[in-house]
């Protein structure tokens, strides 16, 4: 569970799910924690964000909404996404 899993382990786990969900051409450990996921960083677009949201919300048991959360902030980087998962996971 969250308290036994270090941030770094969770970050790698999230990165692995991004890479596998999107079939990306990069190793999970090579994703820079603070580089942007959108645009010029990892190069994700809104189609990818929906795919990633689907996989992560099923894996960790939370629901993403665009009205009540700042998605630009959540999906800003691997680090911010991992923070969000750590705070909102129910499983």
């Amino acid at each position: 569970m969250t308290d036994t899993l270090s941030t770094e382990q969770l970050r790698l786990e999230v990165a692995e799910q991004i890479v596998s969900a999107l079939n990306l051409d990069v190793a999970p450990a090579e994703i820079e924690p603070n580089a942007p996921l959108y645009g010029d960083g990892l190069g994700l677009d809104s189609i990818d964000i929906l795919e990633v949201a689907l996989v992560l919300s099923k894996r960790y048991g939370f629901t993403l909404r665009s009205d009540n959360e700042d998605n630009v902030r959540i999906f800003a980087s691997l680090a911010s996404l991992t923070d969000y998962v750590a705070q909102h996971r129910t499983q």
């Binding site: 809104s46 929906l50 949201a53 689907l54 629901t63 993403l64 909404r65 665009s66 009205d67 998605n71």
Partner: peptide, 10 residues
């Protein structure tokens, strides 16, 4: 224009 599935349903 809703984005996430939960947005669309709401």
């Amino acid at each position: 224009r809703p984005f996430f599935p939960a947005d669309i349903c709401d």
